[in-house]
């Protein structure tokens, strides 16, 4: 049977935990606001650039530019974006589960290259005998465009040297503070997209010519897409953490209420017992 002091201690323990979860929630909320703003501002440009690339890819010969070329996928690369920290609900688990499912399609583990962004994913996949060609941890603290460019550069170099034939991104897409969606997306080669009113597309003109345009546009597109994905993931992480910590705080409240109730009951019992003892004592004296 728990003593009063035990329960008192547990209550104060839960209260301390609650203070931490509440603080984490507040921090996540502030970061979320900023992260949400950046992703919402970055999306229009990235989506439109991606669409234009798709249109161009549907109009030119694919061997015209290395970044469009469809090669036999001998070496496949997955870029997996997770968080550096836990305490964000099922954010990391969702990504890892999805990535595991994707990777299990391949017979030969050694034919896959992984680029791991975020400590959680790194810790998981480095232990599992995959070939890791890039890892980036403690990355989101101060997210800069140049970091996206670094990763994009690595990807493009390996692709151009034909060390990689196909590149996928796995990341959490930001829907709302309480909702993220795991997305698997092909980054390279660029998938052709035919515009909605394609009847007019017969004579799609390039000026000065397709190669010049692709040369400037392709690297920029990869940079921007990687950047977008980093922002999506960061905003999702903050959203997930805020929601998870909100639940944890509420849960602590419930726990404290229950414990308090138990405490009161035991205290009441004790008092009742004491009164009984006193009464029976005085009854005994009367006789």
């Amino acid at each position: 049977m728990a003593t009063l002091r035990d329960i008192k201690q547990r209550i104060s323990g839960v209260q301390k935990t609650q203070q931490i979860t509440r603080a984490l929630k507040m921090v996540a909320a502030v970061k979320l606001r900023r992260a949400q703003q950046s992703i919402i501002q970055a999306r229009p440009y990235a989506h439109r650039l991606g669409a234009i690339m798709g249109h161009i890819a549907s109009k030119v010969e694919h061997n015209l530019h290395p970044l469009l070329e469809e090669r036999e996928p001998k070496r496949v690369c997955y870029v997996i974006v997770t968080a550096d920290q836990g305490l964000c609900g099922s954010f990391n688990q969702n990504i890892i589960r999805k990535a595991d499912a994707e990777l299990s399609q391949y017979q030969d583990k050694q034919a896959i290259d992984l680029i791991l962004i975020g400590r959680k994913g790194r810790d998981y996949f480095t232990k599992r005998n995959y070939k890791v060609i890039g890892e980036y941890i403690a990355f989101f603290k101060n997210l800069q465009f140049s970091q996206a460019v670094d990763i994009a550069q690595l990807i493009m170099d390996l692709y151009n040297e034909e060390k990689l034939d196909r590149i996928f991104l796995i990341y959490n897409e930001f829907k709302s503070a309480a909702q993220q969606q795991v997305v698997v997306e092909q980054l390279l080669p660029i998938i052709p997209v035919i515009p909605e009113d394609e009847t007019f597309m017969a004579d799609y003109i390039f000026e000065p010519d397709a190669i010049t345009i692709l040369d400037t546009l392709c690297p920029k597109n990869i940079n921007i897409q990687v950047w977008r994905v980093l922002l999506e993931s960061f905003a999702s992480e903050m959203g997930a953490r805020m929601t998870a910590m909100e639940y944890a705080t509420e849960n602590a409240n419930k726990l404290i209420a229950d414990l308090q109730m138990l405490y009161n009951k035991i205290r009441q019992e004790g008092i009742t017992k004491e009164i009984l003892e006193i009464i029976s004592g005085s009854e005994a004296l009367k006789v």
Partner: peptide
């Protein structure tokens, strides 16, 4: 890149820098 140009509705589809 090679000077100013104008676009009105119904222009042929094209891409340029």
């Amino acid at each position: 890149v090679d000077g100013y140009f104008g676009i009105m509705a119904g222009h042929a589809p094209f891409v340029t820098s």
